[in-house]
Design a protein around this nucleic acid. Structure first.
Length: 733
DNA sequence: CTGGTAGCTATTTTT
DNA sequence: TAGCTACCAG
C-alpha cells in the first residue's frame, strides 16, 4: 500500500491497528477513505482474514458504500467480511441463536408503524387514555427503557410508587408480551436482545469475540447505550475496536444517541488512542473558519479546528429577508445566477432548512423561476400506505397468525368487515387462545360470528388460496396475486384520481423490487424478502442524478456535500428551535446541526433569515439566529435586499416576484380586505398541474376580487373553472 | 359500516 | 395553515 497519498494523521490512523482507537474525524476529512484503507492494510499485512473483520454502520447506504470501496480496493479478498448496519449484523446473529431467548428463529420485525398500532391496542386493552398517555411518547419511554436494558419488571420495580410510571410500566409489559406472542421484534429489540443473548450465553459471546479480531464502528457519536454495550461485548477479547466519528456532528439525541459514548471513549476503553483528523478536503477556509467559530461555543466537545489548503475562497453571503417569500426569492435568483453566470449546475446546489414545512414556499418559488428541484423528505417508499398494505398481505400469507397484519388489511379493500366485527373476532380468538385468522376460519362454530361467517370465510379463503397457488420462492408473483385477487387493484382502478395512479405505480415498483430481489438472491424466499424490506428503509432516492436543486433538512444533509449550499431560516425560535431554548444541552445540539449545515458547502455558502414568517397560520417576528452572531463578520458579506418592484431574471422580465405578491396581500389584509394567498402568476397558454385533476392548459385568466379565476382544460377531466388561490397549481415541467 | 366534520396540534429520522 | 384523529349521524 502506498501510504504517501495520506496526510500524517491519516497514516497514523491506518497504521494503528492494535488496541482501542478513536478516530475523531472532522467533516470532510476523509474518514471513509481512512477506514477503507485501514481494512485493506490489515488484510494486506495478514493481520486477519476477511471473516475476522466486522464493520458496523448506521445506514444501509453507508454500509454499501464501505463494502463497495473495500471491494474496489482489494477485490475478491473482501469476501466474508461482515459489513452491515447495527441491525443487520444483529439480525444475522439472532437468526442463528435467538432460540436461546425463547423466540422462534423465524421471527418478524415490527417497524415503527407496526409499533404504533400495537401500542394503541395495548393502551385500549389496559383502558389507558391516549390523551394522558400519547402513543408516541409511550413508545419513546419504552424505547428509552430498552436502551437502558430495563426489562418491564425491572422498570416497574424502579418506579414503584410512581402512579404514572407504573402505568407506563404495565403498558411496556403488555407491549412486550404481545410482541413475544407474535414472535416479533421491534427495532430496539434487535439490538438489546443481541446484548442480552451475549450476556446470558458465554459460549455464543465467545464465539463472536473469537471470530472478530477487528471491529469498526462508523458514526460513533450516534450510538446509543445498547449499541455501545454491543460493540464493547463484540470487541471484548481482542480489544481491537476502532470507532470513527465526530462529536461535533452528534445530532440525533432525540432518537437515543448518547454523545458521551464518544466523549468518554478513552475512559471506557483503557489505553485507547485518539487521532484527530482536522485537515479538510471539502471546503474553503472561509467556510471552515465560520464553522470553527460557531462550534467553538459548545462546551461539551473534544475540540477540533478544521483547516484546509484549499485557500480562503469566496466570502459567505448573508441575506436578511423581510419574510420567507423574499428569502425564497433571493435563493431562487441566486441559484439562477450561479447556473447562468458561474457555470454551476442545478444539482450543485442544495437548500437546507431546520424543518420540513419550510420547503413549501421554497418549492413554489423555485417552480415559479422554472428551476428544477427535488425535495428529500418525509414519506419513505416502504411507509406508503399501499406498500404497507401489500406487505401486510404478504406477512399474512407467510404467517396467517399475524394478527396485526390481519387487522390492517382485513377490510382493505372494504369487505364490510368493520371495527365491531374485528373486535368480536379478536375476543373470540383470545378466549380460545388461537389467532384471529384461526378464529375466522372456524367462524361457523362461533355463535357471536354467525352473522358474518360468510364474509370472514371469503377473506381466509383468499389468503389460503394465495398460499397454495403461488410459489414461495417468487415474492413478486405473490404480490401480483395479492394485488389482483384481493380486490386491491379494482379498488384503485375504480376511481381515477392522481393519488390512485401514484399508488398503482408504487405497487408496480414494489413488484419490480421483488423481482430484483429474486435475481440477486441465491435462494429467494418470501421470508427473506420480508426481512429485507423490514431493514431497508428506502429504495435509495438520492443517488439517481437528475440535474436539479435538492431541498432537505439539515439532518438529512449529514454526510453529503454540495458546491453551493443555502442554509435558510436562521432565526431564533426556528433555528435554534423554540423547544431547544430552555436547555444549554439542546442548544448545543442545535449548534452542532448548524455546524453540520455549514460544513456541507464546498465553495459557496449562503445564509439567510426572515424577520417575519408565517407559522401555524399566524405571522411570527423573529430575531436573527444566535448562530449568525457567532460567525465573525470578516468572513461574511451582507447582501442588501433588492426591493424594487420589477426584477430582471435571466434576461426575462418577471411580472411580479413572490415577495411583491406577498407584500400586496399583506397590505390588502391590513386594509381590511379579506384575501387568500394568491398562487403565482399564470397566463393563458401555461401548462399546469393540479393535485386532483392532473395536467392541463390555462385557457383564460380573469381577475376576480383580489383573486383570479382560471379556466383550465385538463387532459383527464376536461374544462374546469378554478380560483387561483384555491387551485394550488404547479407549473408543468 | 361508512362518510363527514369538528377539534386539536404543530422539530429533527434510521433501522 | 394543514393534516390527522375522534366522534357522530345516517
Amino acid at each position: 500500500m502506498n501510504l504517501d497519498q495520506f496526510n500524517d494523521r491519516q497514516k497514523e490512523a491506518i497504521l494503528a491497528t492494535e488496541g482501542p482507537l478513536l478516530i475523531l474525524a472532522g467533516a470532510g476529512s476523509g474518514k471513509t477513505t481512512v477506514v477503507v484503507n485501514k481494512i485493506a492494510y490489515i488484510l494486506e499485512q495478514s493481520l486477519a482474514r476477511p471473516y475476522q473483520i466486522l464493520a458496523i454502520t448506521f445506514t444501509n447506504k453507508a454500509a454499501n458504500e464501505l463494502k463497495d470501496r473495500v471491494e474496489g480496493l482489494i477485490g475478491d479478498g473482501a469476501e466474508g467480511m461482515w459489513i452491515g448496519t447495527f441491525h443487520s449484523v444483529c439480525m444475522k446473529i439472532l437468526r442463528r441463536n435467538i432460540s436461546l431467548l425463547g423466540y422462534a428463529s423465524d421471527f418478524l420485525i415490527y417497524d415503527s408503524a407496526d409499533q404504533k398500532t400495537l401500542i394503541k391496542r395495548c393502551l385500549k386493552e389496559l383502558g389507558m387514555d391516549e390523551k394522558t398517555f400519547p402513543p408516541k411518547s409511550m413508545l419513546a419511554e419504552i424505547s428509552n427503557a430498552k436502551d437502558n436494558l430495563m426489562e418491564p419488571d425491572v422498570f416497574l420495580a424502579a418506579y414503584n410508587g410512581d402512579f404514572r410510571m407504573t402505568k407506563v410500566g404495565e403498558l411496556y409489559k403488555l407491549y412486550q408480551k404481545r410482541l413475544f406472542e407474535a414472535n416479533a421484534l421491534d427495532f430496539d429489540d434487535i439490538i438489546i436482545l443481541t446484548v442480552k443473548l451475549f450476556s446470558l450465553d458465554a459460549e455464543v459471546l465467545e464465539f463472536y469475540q473469537n471470530k472478530f479480531r477487528y471491529v469498526f464502528v462508523d458514526e460513533y457519536q450516534d450510538t446509543n447505550n445498547a449499541q455501545y454495550l454491543l460493540t464493547s461485548q463484540l470487541a471484548g477479547k481482542y480489544r481491537n475496536i476502532c470507532v470513527v466519528g465526530d462529536d461535533d456532528q452528534s445530532i440525533y439525541k432525540f432518537r437515543g444517541a448518547n454523545i458521551n459514548n464518544i466523549l468518554d471513549f478513552e475512559k471506557e476503553f483503557d489505553q485507547a488512542k485518539v487521532i484527530k483528523l482536522e485537515q479538510n478536503y471539502r471546503s474553503t477556509q472561509n467556510i471552515l473558519n465560520a464553522a470553527n467559530c460557531v462550534i467553538a461555543n459548545n462546551a461539551g466537545r473534544k475540540g477540533k479546528e478544521l483547516w484546509t489548503s484549499n485557500g480562503a475562497g469566496d466570502k459567505i453571503l448573508l441575506f436578511e429577508a423581510d419574510n420567507e417569500y423574499e428569502e425564497a426569492d433571493y435563493i431562487g435568483k441566486t441559484i439562477e445566477k450561479l447556473v447562468k453566470v458561474d457555470g454551476m449546475r442545478y444539482c450543485d446546489c442544495a437548500i437546507l432548512y431546520r424543518t420540513n414545512v419550510q420547503s413549501r414556499v421554497l418549492e413554489t418559488t423555485l417552480s415559479g423561476f422554472g428551476i428544477p428541484y427535488r425535495v428529500l423528505a418525509g414519506l419513505r417508499f416502504y411507509d406508503r400506505k399501499e406498500i404497507k398494505d401489500m406487505l401486510a398481505y404478504l406477512r399474512l400469507v407467510f404467517n396467517p397468525n399475524d394478527n396485526l397484519s390481519l387487522m390492517r388489511v382485513v377490510n382493505e379493500p372494504s369487505r364490510k368487515i368493520g371495527v365491531t366485527t374485528v373486535e368480536k373476532v379478536a375476543a373470540a380468538a383470545a378466549g380460545r387462545d388461537i389467532s384471529m385468522f384461526a378464529a375466522m376460519e372456524i367462524a361457523d362454530t362461533i355463535p357471536e360470528l354467525a352473522k358474518v361467517t360468510e364474509k370472514l370465510l371469503t377473506f381466509t379463503k383468499l389468503i389460503r388460496e394465495i398460499q397454495t397457488d403461488t410459489d414461495q420462492t417468487q415474492p413478486s408473483k405473490i404480490i401480483e396475486a395479492v394485488y389482483k385477487r384481493s380486490g386491491y387493484m379494482d379498488m384503485l382502478l375504480s376511481e381515477d384520481s392522481v393519488e390512485n395512479q401514484t399508488r398503482i405505480e408504487n405497487i408496480q415498483e414494489f413488484i419490480l423490487s421483488a423481482e430484483e430481489y429474486e435475481k440477486s438472491s441465491e435462494e429467494p424466499t418470501l421470508f427473506e424478502f420480508l426481512e429485507n424490506t423490514a431493514l431497508i428503509a428506502d429504495v435509495d432516492n438520492y443517488d439517481t442524478e437528475a440535474d436539479s436543486v435538492v431541498l432537505m433538512t439539515l439532518h438529512s444533509a449529514k454526510g453529503l456535500e454540495f458546491p453551493a449550499v443555502f442554509l435558510c431560516g436562521l432565526e431564533e425560535g426556528l433555528f435554534p428551535s423554540q423547544r431547544s431554548m430552555y436547555s444549554e444541552e439542546e442548544i448545543e445540539e442545535e449548534r452542532r446541526l448548524c455546524y453540520v449545515g455549514i460544513t456541507r458547502a464546498k465553495k459557496r455558502l449562503t445564509l439567510s433569515y426572515a424577520m417575519r414568517r408565517s407559522m401555524y397560520g399566524g405571522s411570527v417576528y423573529s430575531k436573527a439566529s444566535r448562530f449568525l452572531d457567532e460567525i465573525p463578520q470578516q468572513y461574511v458579506d451582507i447582501v442588501e435586499a433588492d426591493r424594487s418592484p420589477k426584477t430582471e431574471v435571466g434576461g426575462r422580465k418577471k411580472a411580479k416576484s413572490q415577495s411583491d405578491l406577498f407584500q400586496e396581500i399583506f397590505e390588502r389584509k391590513s386594509a381590511g380586505v379579506r384575501t387568500e394567498p394568491v398562487s403565482y402568476d399564470f397566463k393563458a397558454g401555461d401548462m399546469v398541474v393540479h393535485k386532483k385533476f392532473g395536467t392541463g392548459m390555462i385557457l383564460s385568466v380573469t381577475p376576480a376580487g383580489g383573486d383570479v379565476k382560471l379556466e383550465i382544460v385538463f387532459d383527464e377531466v376536461g374544462t374546469k373553472s378554478l380560483m387561483g388561490s384555491f387551485a394550488r397549481l404547479k407549473k408543468a415541467q
